[in-house]
Design a protein around this nucleic acid. Structure first.
Lengths: 155, 155
DNA sequence: GTATAATTGAGAACAGTTCTCAATAATATG
DNA sequence: CATATTATTGAGAACTGTTCTCAATTATAC
């Protein structure tokens, strides 16, 4: 049985256990991969990275773990227009700070930006409130993405 | 050969021709379906609606047409977290006005909202400018979506 | 330690989307 | 208007990302 190294891992363990689920080597490997490899990873990328830490790992387990982490709220899953899902730590755990995405529709490069986040967050909060009231939703996440061509692709 | 009925269709024809592509009965049917059936349709939904107008239509053609329309900029394609793409007229053609989406993660209901749009648009414009400058992107679209539970699903 | 139930890896199955290809139909040309 | 050219089509096969199945394994409670 492996032991998580970082604070994030410990925190995640507790969260997983608190959810009545077990802590396993496979899940450790996925968590390690997610925190080592950074943002917006595909399941395949997580799989490759995690398998280096735990060679016996299966792809289905990666999907299952990512789904679990997403359900718990530790990971956020999103889409950037190609046809595979992306995963990254949700704010609190990842501690890389809240950010949004800027996506090149040609080369698929993804830029995480934090500039403008403060204003955006402020507006989003107000909008959320208004929408919740008007449409009776209990809102718990949002997505903002900009699409365009990066410098290299714009030519 | 069918003839489009609405202004949007005429406009689209011109755009398609202007792109060096041909105007066909299948494409008319897809355009009609898109404008009759409203927002955020899946390819399957477009297919079913369009096939009522042109029974010989094939699903692959619907995908090809939607891809063409998206590439031309007449249609916007997006994703709301389930695993099928959604399509709707982009602003100018659809003339239903710019809107964003509020998505129920349980029943998958999608609400188009236009409230708050003005402030959002204003902020997005400024953010876009800033991002374009800082990261050298030529930005040409964005997505804002809120996720949560609708009144019925929140219980 | 043992019992119990969650978790696993492997591969099959699945769903949405794209591809292939011969047949058809829209446009340009004469 | 007839014809040649070339895009487009429908049907189904193929593909890709993701989920499911199931017997074997392993974390946890006692």
């Amino acid at each position: 049985m492996l032991h998580g190294k970082g604070h994030a891992q410990d925190c995640c363990c507790r969260r997983i256990r608190g959810f009545g689920r077990r802590m396993t080597a496979a899940r450790h490997a996925v968590l390690d991969a997610l925190s080592a490899r950074g943002e917006h990873l595909t399941a395949e990328e997580v799989f490759k990275a995690a398998r280096r830490l735990y060679p016996n790992l299966g792809l289905a387990t990666v999907y299952r773990t990512l789904e679990l982490l997403t359900r718990i709220g530790l990971v956020s899953k999103f889409d950037t227009g190609d046809d595979r899902a992306r995963y990254e730590f949700a704010d609190p755990a990842g501690t890389k700070g809240h950010h949004h995405h800027l996506v090149c529709t040609s080369c698929r490069k993804i830029v995480d930006y934090k500039d403008f986040i403060k204003e955006e967050t402020e507006l989003l909060r107000r909008t959320e409130e208004g929408l919740a009231k008007k449409y009776g939703f209990r809102i718990n996440s949002h997505i903002i993405q900009f699409y365009g061509l990066c410098k290299d692709c714009a030519g």
